[in-house]
Each structure stands twice: as C-alpha cells, then as structure tokens.
C-alpha cells in the first residue's frame, strides 16, 4: 500500500515536470502570437515557421558548419529576429491600411512559403541534433528524487523561458520602446502623432516575438530530438490556441495559456487517454473560451468606434 502511494506520487511528480516543460515551450511560442496581435491586431500565421526556422538554422550551424551550440543558439535567435522583421516589411507593412483579412491571407501565404522553402533546402525527413554536438551536461539529471528525474536540459528550458518572460515584461513596462508599443496598441494614429515611429516599433515587436519563437524551436529540437520543415504547423496551432486561452493580446496570458495547455495535454495523455491527448487539450481550451470568451487574463474589450 505504502509503495503504491509512493509510486503514484512519483508518477504525478514526473508528469508535472513533463507538463511544465511542454508548457514553457508553448508559452514561448504563444508570446510571439500575442505580442503581434496586441500591437497590430494581426494573427501572424507565419510565426510557427519562424519557430521551425530557428531549429533548422541552429541545426545547420551545429552539423554542417561545426559551430559550437553556445554560439549557434544565439546566432539562430538573431537570424530569426531578422526574419521576423523581413516578414513584417515584405508581407504586412504594405497592407497596413488594407482590410485586416488581407494581411491574414498574406500571413498564411508566408507560412506556406517558408514551409516549402525549408522543404526545398532541408528535405522532408525528421532530423535530430547529434548528441555529441550538444553540451553533455544537458542529459545529466539535475534533480533525482526517487523516480522523478529532472535533467539539466529541462532546467535550462524552464530557466530560459522564465528568464525571457521576465525580460519581456521589463521591456514592455519599463522601457521607452515598451511604452511606445503599448501606445500603438491603444491607438496607432495618435501614437504616430505623438512622434512615435510606428513602423520601427512594429518591427521591434516582430523581432522580439520571433526571437522567442526561435528559442522555443531550438529547445524543442533538442528536447524531443526531432526537427522537420512542417514542425511549425502543429506547434503554431497549439501555441495560437494557448494565446487565445490565456487571452490574446496579453503577454502574461500567453504564458499562463501555454502552461495550462501543456499541462492539460500531458495530464490528459497520462491519466485519461493517450490516443485523445490533443482532443483533451483543445477541449480544455474550448471550455475556457465558452465561460470566459476573452481568455483567462484577457480584458473584455469594448468595441472602439
């Protein structure tokens, strides 16, 4: 009896660890959706592809060019930030004054373009970071409590995720550019009349969001040992769901939404039915939206006229 109780506690403990890891990743991607939506009310469907490109670029640097992981990782982040800005300049900026649906369609177009571009360059097969290219410490247990194992990689994922979230919060609330972002979110025209360079701030938003996506892509690539050109599609949909669940437009909401979705998926697979894990995760999202249409931390907005 005692042994059984201990076993189920350690099972729950390990599932919590799994859920937190998956949730942190969803949160990192979801922030990219929510930031762009908050500032220009656009659902950037190409965001999942930025996440994929992050993983692919880091993979290429590590394997083909034999560059150390600790250099490849930040370089991939910077490259994805630039990609994010390019996306905005090429696909969204020309449509800033067009109906919102037009920009949504170009977003889907960019998503397909990037997916096929990656297929062309890297091929369709699943790739994995070779273990010897990664820091060996990643695979050593950081905490080993009975049956519960937390590897340094998981600690790294959580630290990076939380660290980036705190950094982001600081940027949005305590810097000039953050203030400008919030101003544009409230009213683009007035903000520009106040002397804010709207396009530059929007580019900055894309850069930050894409950087978070790239971080998530690399971390997922390492943690699950799998990267492939269409990996952004499913992850993008899930993260978008997480952003909606948390309240789209709200950065803390995206973090919470990611956490809840990741946990729902893991607990659903672990305790209810593994065949329906995605179904369970989406069911949780639908339930929340039914009872709180603006999402967990979203503000119910009064339509601006």
């Amino acid at each position: 009896m005692h042994q059984n109780l201990l076993d189920s506690v350690s099972l729950l403990g390990q599932q919590l660890v799994n859920g937190i890891t998956l949730g942190s990743v969803y949160a990192l991607i979801a922030v990219g959706y929510t930031m762009v939506y908050g500032v220009i009310q656009l659902i950037n469907f190409a965001h999942g592809e930025v996440y994929m490109m992050g993983a692919m670029l880091a993979f290429t640097m590590v394997t083909s060019f034999k560059i150390s992981f600790w250099i490849s990782f930040p370089v991939a982040i910077v490259m994805c930030s630039i990609l994010g800005i390019l996306l905005d300049v090429v696909a969204y900026r020309p449509l800033r004054r067009a109906p919102r649906l037009a920009a949504l369609i170009t977003a889907i177009g960019m998503s397909l373009f990037l997916q096929n571009f990656a297929l062309l360059i890297w091929g369709s097969q699943i790739k994995a970071f070779p273990r010897q290219t990664l820091p060996a410490v990643f695979f050593k247990p950081a905490v080993s409590l009975g049956d519960i194992v937390v590897t340094w990689l998981q600690v790294f994922i959580l630290t990076v995720a939380v660290g980036m979230m705190i950094g982001l919060h600081a940027v949005i609330h305590h810097t000039k550019v953050g203030t400008a972002m919030r101003a544009i979110a409230q009213d683009k025209v007035t903000a520009s009349l106040m002397g804010i360079n709207v396009n530059r701030v929007i580019s900055f938003t894309f850069a930050i969001g894409s950087a978070m996506g790239a971080v998530a892509g690399v971390l997922v690539g390492i943690y699950y040992n799998a990267i492939w050109p269409t990996m952004g599609y499913i992850a993008g949909i899930k993260a978008f769901a997480a952003a909606v669940l948390g309240g789209i437009g709200s950065v803390p909401g995206a973090m919470l939404g990611g956490g809840v979705l990741g946990m729902a998926e893991v607990m659903g697979a672990g305790y209810i039915s593994s065949a329906y894990r995605d179904g369970i995760a989406y069911a949780v999202m639908i339930l929340v939206i039914i009872f709180k249409p603006s999402g967990l931390l979203g503000k119910s907005t009064v339509a601006k006229v």
Binding site: Q14, N18, V266, A269, G270, A275
Partner: peptide
C-alpha cells in the same frame, strides 16, 4: 498499452506511465 498519433514528438507522458 498506450497510443500516439504520427504528428506527436512528445512521448514523455505515456513513457512516464510505462516507467511506473
């Protein structure tokens, strides 16, 4: 017995269950 779909990359919840 546990199931997965071919789009999955995260198998840890089911494997954790198996481990126990």
């Amino acid at each position: 017995t546990e199931a997965y779909t071919n789009e999955t990359t995260d198998f840890t919840p089911q494997l954790t269950k198996f481990r126990a």
